[in-house]
């Protein structure tokens, strides 16, 4: 099985080593601040978004789009309709920054449990399930492309 993309592995390792909760939160908030760079452009989708792009387990109304690159890799775009959905925005930004353009088998290898390494183990079930749901959609899109080859 392929390893996950190096940038993501490094980030997960760095975040996992942070014991100070506030420091972790600050880093994740800074990440969420970059969410606009990966918000789905109007050329790809406009509201109301189709239901099949919605992350079912995410209570922050997160949506995911996978756009094929000519080299066979993917670019991921997102939207999070709940303006308070900061964690969902941070998660989406992390995925876009570390997975866009990466080999599909490495994207498919991303385990949704990295959520707890990135955000800490204190997440509620709902929050954890929502964030894992975003990863799951991304992973599924990569797997679909791999299966079609």
């Amino acid at each position: 099985m392929a390893a996950i993309p190096e940038a993501l592995a490094e980030l997960v390792s760095d975040m996992e080593s942070i014991s100070d909760r506030n420091e972790r939160a600050e880093l994740l908030i800074e990440t969420a601040d970059r969410f606009g760079d990966f918000r789905v452009p109007a050329s790809i989708a406009s509201k109301p978004y189709p239901e099949d792009h919605r992350v079912k387990a995410c209570e922050s109304d997160a949506y995911v789009w996978a756009v094929d690159r000519p080299d066979g890799t993917l670019d991921f775009y997102f939207d999070v309709l709940n303006p308070q959905g900061l964690s969902a925005m941070a998660m989406s930004t992390i995925l876009a920054e570390t997975l866009n353009g990466q080999p599909l088998d490495s994207v498919a290898a991303v385990n949704s449990e990295i959520v707890f390494k990135l955000f800490g183990k204190d997440l509620s079930m709902g929050k954890g399930a929502g964030l894992m749901g975003i990863i799951s959609v991304v992973q599924t899109e990569a797997k679909k492309r791999l299966a079609a080859r």
Binding site: R21, N22, I29, S87, A90, G120, L123, K127
Partner: peptide, 22 residues
Amino acid sequence: NEDPLLYSAGHIAGAVQVDWTR
């Protein structure tokens, strides 16, 4: 909150945080 980032991202001035898990 449920979302662990919200308080750090901005809260009512003077408000303290009580975290449900910790």
